[in-house]
Every structure is written in structure tokens, then in C-alpha cells.
Amino acid sequence: MHMHKYEKIWLFFGIGSLFLFLTIVGVSAFAQGNQPPSCLTTIDPEKVDQTPPFNKPGLVKTGDNEYQLNIVASAFAYTPNQIEIPKGAKVTINVTTKDVIHGFEMVGTNVNMMVEPGYVNSFTKTFNETGEFTILCNEYCGTGHHLMTAKVKVVDKQ
């Protein structure tokens, strides 16, 4: 099949940049560990309150400067909903839901994940600046969906 010379040039550069682009995305994901939240841990959604660590949701220190933040989502709230994180902390956020699907978005950061019944989702972030972040639900979950929110304060260590 015949292709015009200009079209060949056009496609050559188009497909070339496509592969460059996919390589960048791939290297970032697999070599530098920038994978999207894809936790494979499962949980019984009706027994969240009895299952550790979600039986005691909140911030837990796990290492020198390392923390776990365990959060339970349910219609239409996050538990806990007022969170303080020391500046510089590396925090692994684990979230699960007791009922329907929710979102978990920390506005202004890359923390953005789906929270689905039966699964834990997880993302790790280091908080290098002090400040306040809004957490909100960005997946429709019912009438109170737009009221579902929590607050994170990153504070100076004393």
C-alpha cells in the first residue's frame, strides 16, 4: 500500500515520540518505582472494624521517620478526619471502605486513589512542607458524597 512521503515522515516522528513517551512512563514506573496505587491486599468489608490495622485507625509510627496512616472510609466520612503529620515524615497511607466505593484524594498532592469494598489501597508520600491539606471523596458514593472530607495538618516537630 502506497503512503505519501510526507505521511511517512509525519508517522515516523509521531510513532517515534510515542515510543519515547512510553519509555519515559515505563522507566518512571518500573525503574523509579512511580507506580500508581495498586495494593493487592484484600479484607472482609463487613469486618473492617475488627480487622487490624483498621480496628484502630489513625497515624502509627513504624520506624525512625516512618509512619502508617490507616483510614476507614464509609458513607459519608473518613475515620479519623483530623490528622496531624510531623514535617518530613514518610507516610504510608492505607485506606479501605466499609460500604460502597469511595475516592481518596489529598488535594494538591499526588495522593489520589480508589477505595473499593474488599480491598485495601495504599500510597506512600513524604511530607516535606508544613501546611494544611484537604482530603475529599472524588468517587460518587451517594447523597452526601460532596460532604465527605477530612483534614491533614503537616506540623513542625517540636
Binding site: 510513532i15 514506573a29 500508581p36 496505587p37 495498586s38 486513589m113 480508589m114 473499593e116 480491598y119 489501597n121
Partner: peptide, 28 residues
């Protein structure tokens, strides 16, 4: 479903690569 739990990220990446293939007919 890129940010959802229960799916291994390697499979997500494979489908991302396939997604981008429609760039070719779009450019055409």
C-alpha cells in the same frame, strides 16, 4: 482503573501501552 486496588501495576502498564497505539490511526 489506573489508581484502583486489586490489579497488578504491570498489567496496567501493558494496557497503557496498548492504549497509546491508537495514536497511530489518530495521526493518520
Amino acid at each position: 482503573q489506573l489508581v484502583e486496588p486489586g490489579i497488578d501495576p504491570a498489567w496496567k502498564y501493558l494496557q497503557v501501552v496498548l492504549t497509546f497505539m491508537v495514536v497511530i490511526p489518530s495521526l493518520m
